[in-house]
Every structure is written in C-alpha cells, then in structure tokens.
Design a protein around this nucleic acid. Structure first.
Lengths: 233, 233
DNA sequence: GAGTGGTCTAGACCACGGG
DNA sequence: CCGTGGTCTAGACCACTCG
C-alpha cells in the first residue's frame, strides 16, 4: 500500500505536507519514524529521509535524534530574498543600468563602520559614495567603506568606471556576511543625490562581509522611494 | 588520495568551496563531474552529489544535466529572513508582549487588497487593525484583511483577546504566500497609533497568503522606527 | 546518441540524546 | 542503554539536454 501519488521523494514530501495541513498530524504531534514511513509508503528509508529533511529545512518539522520527528508548533516561516547585483536587477526589468561615482576618499571611518567590521577605530579606509541608476533615474545610493588592507589591488582600479560592488564580487570573495534591512528617512545628502524630498522613507540595506576573519567591506544601500523587495513563501 | 579534511559530505563541500575561493575553479569554469570527484575524494558519488547540491542551492554552483557543474558567474546571494510570530520575536529579546485591537469591521476592501488576494472587488472582508507592543511600547502596527469565506470560524473568535495572526497560524494553514518589504512614511493614522512623528520612515512588510487557490488574508505590518531585520549570509 | 546530474535501493554504521 | 535520525556505500536506472 503506497498511498502516494506521483513518484520520488517530492511525492513523499507532498503527502506528508497534506497530512500536516489536513491536521492528520496536528502541530506539535510526533509523526512515525523514518523506517515506519518507508514501509508504509513502500520506498527506501533514504527516500523518506530526503523528504523529511526538506520539510525540516523549510521549518515545518522539528527533528531530533531519538526524540523523533514532530510537526513544528509555530512554523517559523523563512523568506528567502535573492540579492542580485544591482546591474542585473535593473537590466532584468528591461531598464538601462547607470553608475555614477560621487566621491572617493581615504579617511578614518566612523565608529559604527569600524564596529561593524570589527576593526580598530584608528585605521583609514577607502570611502566610496555612488549612485546606481535605472534608465537615468536614481535607483539606489551607495555608501561604502573598503578595508584596503584586505584588497590592496583596489587601489589600482578606476572606480569611476568600474562598479566597486562588481569589482569586489569578482576579485574579493567573502566567506561570511551580515545583512540588515531597515527603513530610514532620507538625509540631506541622500535627498540631493537621489533628487527627492528630504525625509522620504528609504528601504536601507546594510551589508558587512568578511573573508575568514578579515573584514572586506561595509556597504549601505538606500533604495529609491517605493522600492519593494519581493519573495514567495 | 583523499585530499579532504574531516569527514562526511560537509568536508567535500568545504573542499569545493576552498577551490572556488582560491580560484582553482574560477567563476564560470566547469568542475569535474560527480563520478570523477567521487574517485578523487575517495567517497561514493552520492556523497559528492549531496555536497554539490548544497552548494547549488546556496547559489554558488550552476548544475545542468549533460552540461555538468559550473562555478556560478555571479553568485546570487540569498538572504534568508526568519519571520517569527511577533510574540516570540518580542519575548526572545526579553520583553513583554502586548496586543491591542484597534478596530474590527466587516466592509468592502480597497482595490489594492482585493487585487493582491485575487478576489473580486465587491465582496466584504473582515478588517482588523491592531497594535503589537513590546514592554508597553509600540512595536508594530498591523492592518489586516481576512477572507471570511475561507475561515468562517473566525467570526466566533474574540479578536480583542486573541491575536488574529496567532489564531490564523493555528487554525488556517496556508500553502502559498507572497511577501513584500518596503519603506513607507508614517501616515496620520500610523503616527497616532505608534506615538511618533508623522512622516517617520517605517519598515513595512506586506504578506498575502492562500490555501491552495483560496485567499486567506492580506496583512501589512509597519514596524516601529529603527526596526532592523537581520540575517547572516 | 551519449554524458551528466537526479534519484532510488538495500544495507550498514554511527552520533546524538531521551529515559 | 538503545531508538532515532544522519550519513555513507555500491550499484542501478532514469531524465534531461547538449552537440
């Protein structure tokens, strides 16, 4: 008796999902162990394992050795945002990408930057400000600090022609990062750069990246008013 | 010759990652096929498969049958945001959760709501407005529309005592959803409810959920000023 | 057509952790 | 202790897709 439509581990996944949604297996309850399910469904245990791992990763099941598998009490939904290169994001919606370097200096970084990068406060960093455009109109304002010690070659790059983000992606791989979304009112600088009213609400993304223990860059992107980050659940 | 430290598919994953970061396998290049890698690493092909699938899911590899596996040209980073129940989010930081129902009516929904839910514009929906508090202070303002036809039992719930979100999570499972993040300036209603200045930038989350093809609810959450959604990369 | 990843199987051993 | 999930193996068949 299989009781499963279709084939493969996705069919098992679907059937388990159905039993969760139908309250056959209500939130918090334990479901049969892998060996049992494998027998009921007429498949190998590895196949059941694949299906349950997928559901556990999605947050719908809680699995523990010996304790078994339970339906999550409060399915912590996970929204996965894709963070494409801005150029691709813009070109994907059929617009023309543009990039203007606003300023480039080497100076002491403010404390919130050195803190985020876990760097001593007394080193100087490369500070870049730039504007990304879609069909000539402001799309996002970038404020970036780069740890030159980690990527000395960036000193030889003409950053008014080469997008710093793309250069870093291609030349300074990172192994870990930190990512924060918030909303901020546009300050005078941002308002001027993006040609909008002071105080406008901006979706703001701050990202810090490391290569191993070595800090690479801190960047803050302010998106144009009305920008939406969208994903499916 | 294994050439791999540690054990298990994660060791394989780490070794592949190392070769990508070290530019042994530069972006865009093809890497050996699974059978070959399995032999080099001295493991079964299934183990290599597990490791490569993990990296592909993370966006670092592009895999195609027959074409083989290539290092992603532009690793599209994926940020996974956990969306916990507000109560848990607040209690997790050691604060006391509070919930105030501001209004509850049954009325025609505005067009942007019916559109998002894919419902005809002439039906009436349950409209809720509520304030979530952390240690008595406003934490998030909720504007929700519920498709009563999909969850008729909600009519019998005292929503001034029971959090609508939590009731729905427990009683109206959903199979699909839509999720949008943006920044908005607080309007008069929100400013009053959250006790802050008009025009303050608010991180705004809009979520639409369905059970199969049946729309369940549309909700818009405005978080208090300074709210940050954080994740690792 | 043929190479490559996707998946299944049966069996095995191990690590974790609840009772 | 000992049940449960986590993982590995060797072998097999299949599905996709490039050339």
């Amino acid at each position: 008796m299989s009781g499963v439509k279709g084939q493969g581990w996705q069919a098992i996944e679907a059937e388990v999902l159905r039993r969760i949604h139908s309250r056959d297996w209500p939130p918090g309850s334990a479901i049969p162990n892998e060996a049992e399910l494998a027998q009921k469904f007429g498949v190998a245990r590895a196949t059941v394992n694949r299906a349950l791992q997928s559901l556990a990763e999605a947050g719908l099941l809680d699995r523990k050795r010996k304790a078994g598998t339970r339906v999550a009490l409060h399915p912590v939904r996970k929204a996965t945002l894709s963070i494409p290169i801005l150029r691709h994001e813009i070109e994907a919606i059929g617009m023309t990408y543009g990039y203007d370097l606003v300023s480039q200096t080497e100076t002491l970084a403010p404390k919130h930057v050195t803190t985020a990068l876990r760097l001593p406060a007394d080193g100087s960093l490369l500070h870049l400000r730039a504007l990304h455009r879609a069909d000539r109109r402001p799309y996002a304002y970038e404020d970036r600090w780069v740890n030159i010690a980690a990527v000395p070659q960036i000193g030889e790059v003409d950053l008014s022609r080469v997008n710093a983000n793309e250069w870093l992606v291609a030349n300074a791989p990172f192994t870990a990062g930190d990512f924060v979304l918030s909303a901020t009112n546009a300050d005078a600088t941002e308002a001027a750069a993006m040609e909008m009213a002071h105080g406008t609400a901006l979706l703001t993304l701050e990202r810090t990246t490391w290569n191993g223990a070595e800090p690479i860059t801190w960047v803050r992107l302010c998106f144009a008013p009305g920008h939406r980050m969208r994903t499916a659940l």
